[in-house]
Design a protein around this nucleic acid. Sequence first.
DNA 1: TGTTTGTTATATTACATATATAACACAGAT
DNA 2: ATCTGTGTTATATATGTAATATAACAAACA
Lengths: 131, 131
Amino acid sequence: MFIELDLQSETPIYTQLVDQIVEGIASGVLQPGDPLPSIRSLAEDLGINLHTVNKAYNLLKQEGLLQVHRKKGVIVQPDGMPGVTEAFEEKLRRQLRSLAAAAAVRGMAEEVFAQESRAVYREMIANRGRG
Amino acid sequence: MFIELDLQSETPIYTQLVDQIVEGIASGVLQPGDPLPSIRSLAEDLGINLHTVNKAYNLLKQEGLLQVHRKKGVIVQPDGMPGVTEAFEEKLRRQLRSLAAAAAVRGMAEEVFAQESRAVYREMIANRGRG
DNA sequence: TGTTTGTTATATTACATATATAACACAGAT
DNA sequence: ATCTGTGTTATATATGTAATATAACAAACA
């Protein structure tokens, strides 16, 4: 499994799970229809509790990124990913504003900040051709 | 005072305080050397507890954005803001990665994401001439 | 029948958030 | 000296979140 947890981190375990799965989908490592480990097996692999994995999976299910079946297990959304909704735009801008302010205060120029954003996005989807 | 709290929000009060003060500095509403309300008076104005304001002020003090004196009170860092450290770059990139992944998964193109970042930054510092 | 799946329920521990009081040390004004 | 307002520190409490530990249930499949 491609997931690596930092149990010392201040960011919750279930958030780390959510982030890494989303990044997995964005990067193409996880493709629509691909199966994910069962709640129990992933929990055991990572040495964490069943409910922590369940919480992460459910959040992603509610966002429309995962589908959850009885016996089929958990798979990456095969019927089209959710689009850029108004709610998502708002949330994105709110978080970008916080980052932009912190960057501006430290003297990071507009071009550098924008370029940094572009670079991070590009690296994210760098090898969608192969995984 | 320019601070507005959303007590229903899931983001902690002290985080809202930190964010809005940083945005105040970035936008020029707060200039180096400018005084901030005392811990007690701001707490009373906002209808929150003294310690919540204290926590926010202390975080900003540790980041080097505020100075705290005995009787002089709290002022915006007059001796030069902290620069773009390696630690800050890492933190920024980590958070940008999370946002970029969420955006990419929803089909937001690289150019749109980068432009969104630039626009948010620009609006942040839009009226540094006067406020 | 038995196993594995997601799901739900309950309980417990640990930690973060926020509040409420209280007291302390320091600096300035009266 | 005394009072007042400042940041600071110390306790205590209430609430919510994060994470764990068990247990049980319903559905799908071999």
